[in-house]
Amino acid sequence: MSDRDHQREDDRTPGSHQASVLVQVATYTLGLVLALGLTAISFWAVRTHMLWGPGVPIGLCVLAIAQMGIHLVFFLHITSGPDNTNNLLALAFGVLIVFLVVAGSLWIMSNLNANMMPMPAMMSPQAQP
């Protein structure tokens, strides 16, 4: 079975990475260092007062997306190569659905909140904006 796996030039599964031990370990180590660096920057960004406040959330989103990219490339070995087309297309579809669900929910709910009756007009004092 494993011989056959290596002979055929099939599509590749996520996570498979054919290289020498040294290259493989170096790939994971580089991914670890990059991910640690990005995480450290995000945690530093919320504590420091050196940065312009309103810009921090956008910076945090960029750092998080970059770190997910690092995980996909260095740990799951998703590439843009021909043997990864299926994996990448499935990932693109997943990202599209995630984006629609999250952005759509936030958009609709903020729209509803903006159009809601003013607080005193509501019967329940428990209602939250």
Binding site: M1, T13, P14, S16, A90, G94, V98, V101, S105
Partner: peptide, 30 residues
């Protein structure tokens, strides 16, 4: 394709659908 590729791809689809499920919980929380 050989079984390793098929199994790996199937599991990748499962993981993506799991992430889609998480996106609904993330949207609720946000």
């Amino acid at each position: 394709a050989d079984k390793r590729t098929v199994v790996g791809f199937g599991f990748w689809i499962f993981l993506l659908s799991d992430i889609v499920m998480f996106s609904a919980i993330f949207a609720t929380y946000a």
